[in-house]
């Protein structure tokens, strides 16, 4: 039974959002979507899928605190949803997961039960990446051939690669680092990809910042966009974010824009065998 207010939510979300994408619009691979327990409560899965389709998303990399939200979306739209296993049962685990001894068994149980293309988004910084849980997560990713979606600083990313030099890492928010630092990391690590979620400075007002343009040009195969729907309200921002992304991508050469918009996501996750 879907609560009445939830139905109102999606009706309104769809009606009041900015203009829906059309067939002529640039497809978008959204590499940073969360559908956590609090969002599930107010936005039923079918309506969440409707929002993603309205945004013109070709695919969405979805992770959810609790994971159930992700599974509900995959069941409804396997063509659209790429599931990522977030190591959080509730979002409160964000600051405790690295030391929580009960976590790894939960992850293993989930991995045995469902298919995923990634583990994350998880938050780990500095030397915490050397703790047993992050190490085990890297091992699980290796074992199951999954991408690591890491919200981390440079130090932690380096440590993750030390644990497995062949790991494939999607660097959430590109670590909120400046273009020069992102460039240095991309030059050092061939298996590092970057999402641009929750940052605006690279494409404000539909214009690509010169430093970022240079970086996108040097690494055309490594960037992708993402919304980061970390609260239920942010689902009302998915469509607007996709359109905002299209606006600044239009300031790039067509081929480069398409790569960042969706081809890079397809290339990275298309290569990941679904389990």
């Amino acid at each position: 039974m879907v609560p009445r207010h939830a139905r109102l939510l999606v009706a309104s979300a769809l009606a009041m959002s900015p203009l829906a994408a059309t067939a002529a619009d640039l497809p978008v691979f959204d590499a940073h979507v969360h559908y956590s327990h609090d969002a599930v409560e107010v936005l039923p899965p079918a309506d969440a899928i409707a929002v993603l389709r309205k945004a013109g998303l070709k695919r969405a990399l979805v992770s959810s605190s609790g994971d159930d939200g992700t599974q509900k979306l995959v069941a409804l739209a396997p063509d659209l949803i790429l599931p990522s296993l977030r190591p959080y049962r509730t979002r409160a685990d964000v600051s405790t997961w690295v030391r929580d001894e009960t976590l790894v068994p939960w992850l293993e149980e989930r991995l045995a039960k469902s298919r995923y293309v990634a583990i994350g988004e998880f938050h780990v910084y500095g030397a915490d990446a050397d703790l047993p849980n992050p190490r085990r997560v890297v091992e699980l990713a290796k074992k199951h051939r999954l991408v690591l979606h890491a919200h981390s600083d440079v130090d932690a990313i380096e440590r993750l690669f030390r644990h497995d030099p062949r790991a494939r890492v999607l660097w959430a928010h590109s670590g909120f680092e400046r273009p020069d630092e992102v460039r240095a990391m991309l030059r050092r690590h061939r298996n590092l990809w970057c999402d641009l979620a929750f940052r605006s400075e690279h494409g404000s007002d539909g214009k690509v910042d010169p430093a970022w343009r240079s970086l996108f040009t040097e690494f055309p195969d490594r960037f992708m966009v993402g919304t980061d729907s970390y609260t239920p309200e942010r689902w009302h921002y998915v469509v607007e974010h996709a359109n905002w992304s299209r606006a600044w991508l239009a300031d790039l050469p067509k081929d480069l824009a398409e790569r960042i918009a969706w081809r890079n996501g397809e290339a990275l996750f298309g290569a990941a065998p679904a389990r």
Partner: peptide, 12 residues
């Protein structure tokens, strides 16, 4: 603070 203006409507 939650910023739903009403069920299904967000205050941006």
């Amino acid at each position: 603070i939650a910023h739903f203006a009403a069920p299904g409507r967000v205050d941006p």
